[in-house]
Amino acid sequence: MTAERVRRVLRENGLSLAFGAMFLVSLAGQALSGVAAFNEQQLSTGGEQISLGRYLLSSSFAADVAENWQSEYLQFFLYIFATVWLVQHGSTESKQVGEEGDGSDKEQRVGRYAQPDSPRWARLGGWREVVYSRSLGLVMLVLFIASWGAQSVAGWAAYNNDQLSTRQDPVTWADYLVAPDFWNRTLQNWQSELLAVGSMAIFAVFLRQRGSPESKRVGAPHQETSSDTS
């Protein structure tokens, strides 16, 4: 790969790569601060100190990461599906009022309206078209369920560790699913995602960010809903 081509790939994928890099830095930061916080707590309860390596293998670390992942994927899943059917007048995050629903085959360029450069599954019709037509939301849903599942298993192990260290009986996974700890971890993440999404949808009506595709053009009227109608 030439230097020229590397530069081009980096530029064309700058958004995904920058966020991927920031994710890795944040995760490393979470691991470092997480082990420090864990050891601080151990000190106060007379437990043994653990290394970073052991912390990375702990259920406590796994549960902390997974509980945040699940809420992010829930947020995107809900947003992707909700915006098919719900609109917000004047928001760039929304279709126009009256455009609710999944659109005609012609609008969506599927089946016989597919073009030569359309994705293969959009051209094929049948079940493949049905699946591919919802693949973005479905992948988010699968990742949400998988990460919520991971949170439940890791959170359960972490919870039982605490139970044992305070000489209480461990609980079963089914018990943990109805335990306050599981729902506290879950809902504290959901509420923040839902607030952020709701406020983004309505803030985008009246506020602008020059140059961002998440915003209308600065001079666009408040009642204009979709950014591409200008």
Partner: peptide, 30 residues
Amino acid sequence: VNGTKAVFIGYLVLIVIGLVYFTALGMAHQ
């Protein structure tokens, strides 16, 4: 397009490895 596809697959692989790892960690501690 190939660079873009590599980023796409990279994200998917990263997420799947993470999910398998966290689930396995939880199970290993039982």
